[in-house]
């Protein structure tokens, strides 16, 4: 059967065909056929951990962005936030898949997304906190996209893994759009009315203490030759220029305390992550082994 239309083909009972994405992708591997060999001098456990750190950041923020569906102030913003979430979800799928290859466990993206507990997630706390109002969400997105764009730009050049470099090169182009979107709203709200400026400033103040964690190195990334602390100064310079352009004030607030020296990268999270994961994982856990 060679019908051009996927739904028609399914309706006509061509069940020997691969599962199509209408019923779930039979194309479960987002790195299908990609050369997945590790470079000889790379520690698979370190690479896996680093992919989980970046992949969990993307997965958790994607979930938060998608929560705006049916709640955004305007339809265009809802479409925009969902689009950004979809980009991050795509990045997360490749990064989690790579993590399961790198550590030799063969775990899939679904194994990582649905079957780990809260303390096994390695995302920064910035991406997990509640959305708050639109200005809070924009402030979080601005901080994350600016820092992640800078990081992906480095990773695309310097990471000791070809798959990671390719994912970062692709992702950097997407993050540039995310940053531009967030900065556009920062400017509009910050340089808008006194009331909108007050709300935007409150959003910045709320998320600012969570920024520093993005620049705090985990030993795994240092062993891969990547140090996010090098990004602190350029990212702060860029954020300062944008915030001042929006006639707002760069918050002078200390970083959110670590717990016994540990934070998101070490699996120590705020209580918001547990609730987010409960929703994210509910269907997979109620129907173990189901495919969709």
């Amino acid at each position: 059967m060679t019908d051009d239309h996927v739904y028609l083909t399914l309706a006509q009972g061509d069940h020997e065909a691969e599962a199509r994405w209408a019923y779930g992708t039979g194309f479960a591997d987002p790195l299908l056929g990609v050369d997945t060999a590790l470079a000889p001098d790379v520690d698979g456990a370190d690479l896996s951990r680093y992919c989980l750190m970046l992949g969990d950041d993307a997965l958790v923020l994607a979930q938060r962005l998608i929560e705006w569906c049916t709640h955004a102030p305007e339809l265009e913003e809802e479409v925009a936030l969902a689009n950004l979430g979809l980009d991050l979800l795509g990045q997360a799928r490749m990064l989690l898949t790579r993590a399961g290859q790198a550590d030799g466990s063969g775990r899939t993206e679904d194994d990582f997304a649905y079957w780990r507990g809260e303390h096994e997630f390695h995302n920064v706390r910035l991406v997990e906190v509640e959305n708050g109002d639109f200005a809070h969400s924009i402030a979080r997105l601005l901080l994350f996209a600016t820092a992640r764009l800078a990081l992906y730009t480095e990773v695309a050049e310097r990471a000791p893994d070809q798959v990671l470099r390719a994912v970062a090169a692709r992702g950097a182009k997407e993050l540039a759009y995310h940053q531009e979107y967030a900065a556009g709203w920062l400017l509009r709200l910050g340089d808008g009315t006194a009331y909108s400026a007050e709300r935007m400033q409150a959003g910045l103040d709320a998320v600012w203490p969570l920024l520093d964690e993005l620049f705090t190195a985990h030993e795994a990334e240092l062993r891969l030759g990547l140090d996010p602390a090098e990004l602190r100064e350029p990212v702060l310079t860029e954020l300062t220029a944008l915030i001042e352009r929006a006639t707002l004030t760069v918050p002078q607030l200390p970083p959110l305390a670590r717990v016994g020296g540990r934070a998101g990268r070490e699996g120590v999270h705020t209580e918001a992550l547990g609730r987010l994961l409960a929703e994210l994982q509910a269907v997979a856990r109620e129907h173990p082994g189901a495919t969709w």
Binding site: R20, G26, L32, R165
Partner: peptide, 27 residues
């Protein structure tokens, strides 16, 4: 991308190619 890959594989098989292997290239 999933549907693209499935479509390519189908068209090739319909054209008589017995082994149609579709892979991704990221870089």
């Amino acid at each position: 991308i999933a549907e693209m890959a499935a479509d390519v594989a189908h068209r090739l098989r319909d054209a008589g190619f017995t082994g149609a292997d579709v892979r991704l290239r990221l870089d």
